[in-house]
């Protein structure tokens, strides 16, 4: 699905990430940890072609991102659901429209999808807030709306960047639950977080691999969390 082959990334200064190689297998569940500023968000941006690697090769669904044009990248993003660290919405449209945005922009905004939309909204517990505007949502509600938006296209891969960043433990658990359920449905999941408790909580429910960015490199963390 997403493959990184000896990838390096720098923002112009020294290299932030070096010699990164990883293959996200279908149906796998990964955590990505590392200290703040280590490059977790940067790594995920490489995975949805918001950034181009400065060296090495990133392949999305078998295609080198360097050979993709802007339309190819747009099409690939429809198959990758992303929960961004700084979640942004169209603030003038209600939550329901924002969650349905990926459908709208890809021209799949049909009637039977509206049934799915309602189901999805109640699944993330936002049914009552469907008509609210994004600026009226709480932090946790924003995170859940972002997750709903990330999965509405039924993407093959879901990348979540600190999805539990500013919500309490109970809500974090609930969100994790949603992601675990998606994984059981066959989705490939990658969660960037520095919340070790969350990782521990997940380990009881799924076969999760934990990756750590340390010293610019990607390491597989031990099972001793």
């Amino acid at each position: 699905m997403i493959e990184l082959d000896n990838v390096a990334m720098s923002y112009g200064g020294g290299e932030l990430l070096s010699e990164i190689s990883l293959q996200l297998a279908p149906g796998s569940f990964h955590f990505l940890t590392g200290p703040s500023g280590a490059g977790k968000t940067t790594f995920l941006k490489l995975c949805y072609a918001a950034l181009m690697p400065t060296a090495g090769q990133v392949r999305l669904f078998g295609t080198d991102v360097r050979t993709m044009d802007r339309d190819d990248i747009a099409l690939a993003r429809r198959r990758i659901g992303v929960v961004h660290q700084d979640v942004q919405f169209l603030d003038h449209l209600p939550v329901a429209d924002n969650v349905a945005l990926p459908l709208t922009v890809s021209g799949r905004d049909t009637l039977d999808e509206s049934v799915n939309l309602r189901e999805l909204l109640s699944w993330v517990g936002l049914k009552a807030r469907a008509d609210a505007l994004p600026p009226e949502l709480s932090g946790g509600e924003r995170q859940r709306a972002a997750l709903a938006r990330a999965v509405i296209m039924s993407p093959d891969v879901i990348l979540a960047d600190e999805p539990t960043g500013n919500i309490d433990w109970e809500m974090s658990q609930r969100l994790l639950q949603l992601l675990v359920e998606l994984n059981r449905m066959g989705k490939t999941i990658m969660i960037a977080t520095h919340d070790l408790n969350l990782i521990r909580a997940a380990k009881g429910q799924v076969q999760a691999r934990v990756l750590r960015i340390a010293g610019r490199r990607l390491q597989l963390a031990g099972a001793d969390l």
Binding site: A50, R70, D71, A74, L75, R77, R78, V82, H84, Q88, F89, L90, D91, L101, P102, V105, S106, R149, M153
Partner: peptide, 16 residues
């Protein structure tokens, strides 16, 4: 700018 960035991130083509 934010609207455009969001649209782009959820997979909208430039032409759209």
């Amino acid at each position: 700018a934010q609207v455009i960035a969001v649209l782009r991130l959820v997979g909208a083509r430039d032409s759209y």
